[in-house]
Simulated assay, not measured.
Amino acid sequence: MQGSSIRVALLMLALAPFGLQASEPATEKVPEYALDASWPKLPLPNRWALGLINGIHVDANNHLWMFHSPELVPNYARGAAQTPPTGKCCVPAPAIIEFDEQGEVLRAWGGPEQAKGYDWPTAGHGLFVDYKGNIWIGGSQTRVGADGSPPDGMYLKFDPNGKFLLQIGGRGPSKGSLDPSRLSGASAVDVDPETNEAFIADGYGNHRVIVFDADTGEFKRQWGAYGKPPTDEKLPRYDGGPTLPKQFNLVHCIRIANDGLVYVCDRLNNRLQVFRKDGTFLAEYVYEPQTRGSGSVGNVSLWPDAQQTFMVMNDPGNFQTVLIRRADGKVLSRFGHFGTWAGEYHRNHQMEFDRKGNIYTSEDHRVQRLKIVNGVTPR
């Protein structure tokens, strides 16, 4: 299999009404990108420093929301936070930060020390802004940590000012991929505005997509790879050969398109699976099948035109940004390289379009913005 391999034989007639087309579309002009060094405005206020970036998302106002781990700001960068201070730099920033388009901080809140009446994640993972403007975050720790910290089995919902609204699940080890009462290393969520359902990629410990009412937390349904019931069978990761695993390995992203298609990243199996919202399997795309390490399918984000023509995919194992045609999963362009210089990628974790088609990329301790340089914009 070369680059993108598409397993959709015998399915294409069924897929056409759901946005996947059997015919080859006309050649599109694809956006090209360069680093936008103007974003964010630096230095951050209040002598803030960032830990690991757990999640990013762009809201309806084209503001970038960031979730990071204040507790993972290294000790050598905490001098200003000591009593008495041991240096001018720095202070860990609050866990959740909102930036405007120009890169200015608008508000910030959250962190384990502020959690009252709910379980703050031990190892934060994922951030999503729903259609009501609410903020969702999860956690990826699946075992008791070396320091005794508990596993993450929850997803949390807040209003934009940090008021706690809902907890789905709770701390503790997995109860299995069929149990709806606790998550295990849930990595991402998307909320469907048509049904007000929260679709959770559950994820690092369990092997499923699980769906809840986004206001009450009531369990609705769940599924594993190919829409089958999820299992906890210990399966090896994909080896790049012709036979693909029958179960998810690491469910690392979930994204619902305007036409109702649900895209699920199976990161360590180097594939993207496509479903209807009821869990019916439609298609599978495999990318760079020989990739080991962090895998090749980290997350996807949808181009902000009406048809959501393109997707941007984060390829963490190859340190690249990948632009994909959504209609058939074909790779249209790839770019990026490992490194710590501006414009390079170091442990790239997530990539998201904004409302104008620019791309935000998250890594350890930083988010970068890539701007369109060839005039191709959403229409």
Rank of each mutant, 00 (worst) to 15 (best):
D147R: 12
D159T: 09
G139I: 03
G145T: 06
M154Q: 14
K163R: 13
E98I: 04
G169V: 08
W109C: 08
C90G: 11
E113F: 14
A81L: 04
C90K: 00
F158H: 03
R182E: 08
W136M: 02
A146C: 15
A77T: 12
R143K: 15
Q102N: 13
A80R: 01
T122P: 00
F67R: 07
K116Q: 06
P70E: 03
G87F: 02
G170K: 13
A115M: 05
P92T: 05
Y155D: 15
P70A: 00
G87R: 05
H68L: 04
A123L: 13
K157Y: 09
G133C: 04
I135W: 07
Q114T: 13
F128R: 11
S140Q: 12
Q82D: 15
A108T: 11
G124V: 01
G87K: 01
M66G: 00
P160C: 08
R143H: 15
N61I: 09
P121N: 05
P84D: 04
H63D: 12
P74W: 09
R182P: 08
P150E: 10
T142W: 11
Y76W: 14
L106R: 13
W136C: 02
N134I: 14
N62I: 03
G138H: 05
A115D: 06
S177Q: 02
P150D: 09
A80F: 03
L64H: 04
F99Y: 00
G139E: 06
A123T: 14
P74G: 09
P150M: 07
L183N: 05
L106P: 10
K157G: 08
Q167T: 11
G138R: 02
D179G: 07
T86C: 13
H68W: 01
D152K: 09
W109A: 08
W120Q: 06
S181K: 10
Y131T: 10
A93P: 07
T86M: 14
I137L: 01
M154N: 14
I96P: 03
